[in-house]
Amino acid sequence: MSDKRFSLLETAIDVGVERRALDHAAAGAYASFEGWVRNHNDGRAVLRLDYQAYAPLAADEGEAILAEAAGRFAVREVRCVHRVGRLAIGDLAVWVGASADHRDAAFAACRWIIDEVKRRVPIWKNEHYADGESGWLHPDNTPVGSG
C-alpha cells in the first residue's frame, strides 16, 4: 500500500492490502474495478502482455485523475494501481477502488477513474499473439508493428 493514491507496480497487485487505504468510518460502500489480462483481443489469441509506462508522467497524471475524482464525486477515498512489465493471462492488470458514504458515488467514481486512466495515463500495452507476432495497441485498437 502506497501513500500515493495512484501507483505503478512491477509485482502482483495485492487487493487485500490496497483496499485498506479506502477504510473510513463514514463509508458505507466500497466499489472496485479489476482489469484482467484476457486470452484474446480483436479475434486473435493472446498469450501474454507487456505494459510499458513513462513512469514519472504516468504517476503525476494518475495522481491528478484521482484528485479530480475526489473532488467530483462524494467519495471518502479513491485509489488506483496499474501493473507494468510482463503479465500472464488472468493476471490483474489494473485495480480501481472507491469508498463512499453511499454506493452511487463509489460506483460512479470507479467508472470515471478507469475511463480517465485509459484515456490519459502514458501506459502502453504490447500484446503477444499465439501466431508469434506482437504489437503495441493504440486507442483505435490497431496494433502498430515494429516493421
Binding site: 509506462a53 513513462y54 504516468a58 489494473v94 485509459k118 502514458p122 500495452k125 483505435d140
Partner: peptide, 29 residues
C-alpha cells in the same frame, strides 16, 4: 508531447538539454 516530465503544447519553446518525449496514443487499463 512532454518536456522534462510535464505535458506541453506543440509550440512550447525548448531549451538546451531538455528531455523531450513524444507520447503515442496510450493503451493502459
Amino acid at each position: 508531447v512532454a518536456v522534462n516530465g510535464a505535458f506541453v503544447a506543440w509550440d512550447h519553446a525548448l531549451s538546451d538539454r531538455d528531455e523531450v518525449v513524444f507520447l503515442p496514443p496510450v493503451s493502459g487499463g
